[in-house]
Design a protein around this nucleic acid. Structure first.
Lengths: 90, 90
DNA sequence: ATTAATTTGTTCGTATGTATC
DNA sequence: TGATACATACGAACAAATTAA
């Protein structure tokens, strides 16, 4: 549906926050950010995708609810340690 | 029967909502709105064609049933992605 | 300890769209 | 026709904790 390099389509049928969630998930799957590593800050994602912070937070909340991400207040948002999707490389 | 630039004939033999459906279909065929792009809001169509909102919704429902349009609740009404009429856009 | 920058948490206001009554 | 509800998006402001100088 949405690839790692897709941009947000503000007028599309899919809401921006869902697009962002799909994009972030794709980027995680691709390996842009590894388990227990932080994803870019909300402010950074705002710049990168041209979204309001509230929208970015909504997209992140979506992935937190799915268990893909977890938030450490005042510290950052991190990729959850995947138990099965564990990619063994290196 | 009805062209893209036709107006609604409130006294004609064809019901307004069918006229609207035909007009919208003609406008889509003409390219006023592309696949996966939103058509004007219900409120906008009410103004533009001088119809009651319920009538506009009925006309839209007609095209949704035909697969010409699809509705994303709380977001908007969109032109269905045509599998064959697929226009190559940038 | 101070100061400043960074980052998430929270709330309010405004706007737009469909859904329902 | 009109009013209300619900979902979404943007913008702004401030709080609180972390981090670095």
């Amino acid at each position: 549906m949405f690839g790692p390099d897709d941009l947000i389509d503000h007028d599309g049928p899919i809401t921006p926050y869902r697009q962002l969630a799909a994009i972030l998930k794709a980027r995680i799957a691709r390996g842009d950010w590894r388990p227990n590593r932080p994803i870019p800050s909300e402010a950074r994602l705002v710049q990168e995708y041209g979204l309001a912070r509230s929208t970015v937070r909504r997209g992140i909340a979506e992935l937190v609810a799915e268990g893909v991400l977890f938030v450490m207040p005042q510290r950052g948002t991190y990729v959850s340690p995947s138990d099965s999707t564990e990619g063994a490389e290196g």
